[in-house]
Design a protein around this nucleic acid. Structure first.
Lengths: 358, 358
DNA sequence: TTGTAAGCGTTATCAC
DNA sequence: GTGATAACGCTTACAA
């Protein structure tokens, strides 16, 4: 009614019409002189062939001129598809995630999906809260960049057969698709670089060991050191309890004050590496002249630090688009074989690494 | 049915039940021996008083034990409230926005709302696309950090009486609530600091002038200079066409090569300031020894640059929470007087500013 | 090819 | 205080 009135207020030629959410399918059908069901079929590309080309064209024209926009909520209720995906990340403020999230969003948008972002602050309780909230909103699937190696959430999602794609994380036994960087290979690049510069006393600040990146990078460190014939000195491996600047600071201080001394540090990620910068400055040690530092992730802006951080890089945005693709695949065909992607890392050599002092 | 079966599978004591979205209001009503309408009333805090305390308690208990979660989609269809707010930002990858977005999300979550993030890349066409998409999803309101001074979108939103809150931006004539930093005052702090250090030849790299921040910071610059009795040399004001590192680089080069020379630069924002760093390094000029640089926004990680950037700071997260509060207020009561908030800026003095060379 | 009718899960408006 | 009923806007068997 209001729609027809609105249409009448406009001149006949005046196109294209601005979207008007108050126009309903019924309005379009009435204006086109067909039944709502027919209008629905014509408007839906999937079922358009079921209606005669002529009427289809007419319906489309009318819909366009009225500024018709299908009501996504009503459609969701009926089809039981919310066209919505929940994205769980630790914290949007960590610069690693924005590019990944944008990748996810952009890929989802191609299929008319939107992302609901949830920050867990790496807190199990918050994670549970956000997860339940999103389930109440009937998200069609999840992208999780936050899961621990073992997680009740994942078990639940698996039991409920909800599509889940893991990002930057792996979890045992659920057979979820995943996309991440090849951590072992990334660390190997870092160690090889340092070894080539002449370093032998190489330390590692390991990330949290209940998270797959922390574990696999630590393993990769050991393997790579062995491959270069350098024994891993247990006193040169410190474990951080979080991927934070503070923890990097703490661990680096520990290495420099309590340890047997080292000439290079392979940090579990860039945040830990930035923490190293803090510690080095506080202790009056020069980087890279006295100590080389390598990070992991190649976060945005990390190349603007002084010295610019040498870091293991991988295509963040592409991680996002691939994750989006995978979750859409799972939503479309639940039985699709879960793909597990390892994107290739690349070492960005910058100013934080140099040969060891004499 | 499935719900009842699921309930029966569980032992009676087994609480609290995990949320089970397949349980519907009808299931709860049946299990409690009441009509769905009664169950609805009991479950809704707003209408709970309409039902006798005894039955209400029973219904709540049953709902809890079945793991009932109201279907947000169905509720939205009926109440015409999606409990969803669209958030339009230029680009999530700009470090300024994540803390703001988190502030918005956290405040919205308190009222059971979620945010749909849309990146416009400062592109009008993309902005339109995202805006329409969100309207199709029937968002209850918008938070826009992206609007130009004049914008068709804003006119449309105003006409459709859709709640809009502007962040970091102002627009003329629509009477939208807004929250931003006091830009004039912020720039005044920067200029005062430089003047106190002894600078007289102070340049300004102005942001885009079709965006309110660009304009008001430029105006603030002129006012502040006048207040210190320093005439503004037009040759020392360069205009950037975007808030990007590249533009900062370009403008700074222009100042240093073509201009009459300066000892300090007030950049329109931190991205432009970072661009200055690039230009200074390329031209072999020392900061702060030869040229001081001041930024605006105090973005995360900007204190980790070398030299750490002196920048005008404001509480990003709080901007978000206030914006969330304002948009919720508009949604709840459309006629609420639109509040316009100016958060106080603070100058963070760091290593990028020093007295001018002799 | 098109129309009919039912229903997705909720809530608002009536009666009782 | 509670129950019946309709409706939100759309899709989809099924019937014609």
């Amino acid at each position: 009614m209001g729609a027809l009135a609105a249409a009448m207020r406009r001149s006949e030629r005046d196109t294209p019409m601005r979207p008007d959410p108050s126009v309903t399918l019924k309005d379009v059908a009435a204006a086109a002189g067909v039944h709502p069901a027919t209008a629905s079929r014509a408007l839906n590309p999937q079922t358009r062939l079921l209606v005669s080309p002529g009427t289809a064209r007419r319906i489309l024209a009318v819909a366009d001129s009225l500024g018709y926009r299908p009501n996504a909520v009503a459609r969701s209720l009926r089809t039981r598809r919310s066209h919505t995906v929940g994205v769980l990340i630790p914290d949007l403020k960590n610069p690693l995630f924005p590019p990944i999230v944008r990748g996810i969003e952009d890929r989802l948008a191609e299929d008319g999906y939107v992302a609901l972002i949830g920050n867990t602050d790496s807190d199990d309780e918050r994670e549970r809260l956000v997860f339940d909230l999103m389930r109440a909103r009937h998200v069609d699937g999840f992208v999780m960049a936050t899961a621990h190696l073992r997680s009740r959430l994942l078990a639940e999602a698996a039991a409920a057969r909800i599509p889940v794609v893991l990002v930057n994380r792996h979890a045992e036994g659920y057979g979820f698709p995943a996309v991440s960087v090849d951590n072992e290979r990334g660390i190997a690049l870092a160690v090889a670089h340092l070894a080539a510069l002449g370093h032998r006393r190489i330390a590692h600040i390991a990330g949290p060991q209940d998270v797959s990146t922390g574990l696999s990078r630590y393993r990769g460190f050991c393997t790579a050191m062995a491959a270069h014939g350098i024994p891993v000195d247990p006193a040169l491996v410190v474990r951080a309890f979080a991927y934070s600047i503070e923890e990097g600071d703490r661990c680096c201080r520990e290495l420099l004050t309590a340890g047997p001394g080292c000439t290079a540090v392979v940090a579990g990620n860039d945040m830990l590496a930035v923490g190293c910068y803090t510690a080095l400055e506080a202790l009056g040690r020069e980087c890279p002249a006295e100590i080389s530092v390598v990070g992991f992730n190649d976060m945005p802006f990390i190349d603007k630090l002084r010295p610019p951080l040498t870091s293991v890089s991988f295509p963040h945005y592409q991680v996002g688009t691939e994750a989006g693709r995978l979750v859409l695949g799972q939503i479309g065909a639940r039985n699709e074989r879960p793909e597990v992607l390892y994107l290739p890392p690349e070492l960005k050599v910058r100013g934080s690494t140099a040969p060891p002092p004499q």
